[in-house]
Design a protein around this nucleic acid. Structure first.
Ligand SMILES: [Mn+2]
Ligand SMILES: [Mn+2]
Ligand SMILES: [Zn+2]
Ligand SMILES: [Zn+2]
Lengths: 180, 180
DNA sequence: CCGATTATTGAAACGGTTTTCATTAAAAGA
DNA sequence: TCTTTTAATGAAAACCGTTTCAATAATCGG
């Protein structure tokens, strides 16, 4: 696929997400504002897992008058609208990721280096629903996180002794093939 | 089983947990203190999901000189020792529950009333391990939480219209039969 | 038992998230 | 357009969880 076509496709997607946002705004009796438009725009450009603070600084570059609180609230709003999803990896920060047009997935996190791998297991998903129903619940959502030592870190442990253990390593987002 | 026998069994269990704690303390080159003994004692008496703050107030009644921080740190220590486990239910609080002599379990949380049901699914557990290995990880631990609407709240929704939605309802711990 | 060493303690500071509140501005109607 | 209504905004405070740091106390060697 050509790069131009990629970009065109992205623009199409963004339009859809913006429409969904406006629809949600209307249904909930909320108001469209310049801040919300800008925050959504910048959120859509960024495919990474990012925190409210991360997004705040990106927004800041384009409009320094926007406050932390508005970014925070808009991310909540996007989550309600189904465009974003909150995820936590155990470092006491809340990250947001795209939800619309992105397959649902769960995460495996390396306890040594913080690497995050995304996966999807239809089998686990359906068993979760079965368990919920078994206890009389109508399931709405779930959170599944696995922790372990990644392949790289297993090798590192064998080589050198001064293991870096758990410092403030950056979290890496690794694209993976879905399925189990 | 007689009540006396129950109590005797509990006391036995406590003794085991105290021994495990002391062993962990020794192995890690830590020190036994009056505060840690008291905090463990009171933690063991309480079967509920409780926060560091909750436990702090219980401790406070017996020794007002103990600080928040020590309770917080001792709970972390108990978690390391395998006696406690951290759990979160989405209300931005960290709860602790007994781990030793308590089967591992995950939680279903009602989005309407906050009720928490404990369950265990060996099938899901083994699939989690399979997924981890598939991506080259050696699994260490996991967190699985399901959310949904409980049976009671499904009925409530049908009866009266002014649904209480999500206020600050107390979390109820419901004992359940393990298995899937 | 005493002194040296070093883990532990509690207060206070810190960091990220969430709420509060006075002000601003979007939306709807006259 | 002008007015009225009421949601949205941003600063600051509140809230939990975690870290820092100086003072304290458990452990060990002599
Ligand atoms: Mn993800
Ligand atoms: Mn539990
Ligand atoms: Zn790793
Ligand atoms: Zn319920």
């Amino acid at each position: 696929m050509l790069k131009l076509e990629d970009m065109a496709k992205k623009i199409e997607e963004f339009k859809n997400e913006k429409e969904i946002f406006l629809e949600h705004i209307q249904k909930a009796g909320l108001r469209r504002t310049a801040q919300r438009d800008l925050i959504l725009e910048i959120f859509l450009r960024t495919e990474e897992h990012l925190t409210s603070e991360d997004l705040y600084w990106l927004v800041q570059k384009e409009d320094p008058s926007v406050g932390h609180t508005t970014v925070y609230r808009t991310l909540k709003l996007l989550t309600e609208a189904g465009l974003a999803r909150e995820v936590r990896f155990g470092d006491n920060k809340t990250y947001y990721e795209h939800h619309y047009n992105h397959e649902h997935h769960d995460h495996i996190i390396c306890t040594e280096c913080g690497k995050v791998v995304e996966f999807f297991s239809p089998e686990i998903e359906s068993m979760q629903d079965a368990v919920a129903h078994k206890f009389g619940f109508i399931p709405t959502h779930h959170s599944l996180r696995l922790w372990g030592v990644c392949e790289d870190c297993q090798h590192k442990a064998n080589e050198s002794h001064p293991t870096m253990a758990s410092g403030a390593q950056p979290r890496v987002r690794v694209k993976t093939i879905a399925g189990n």
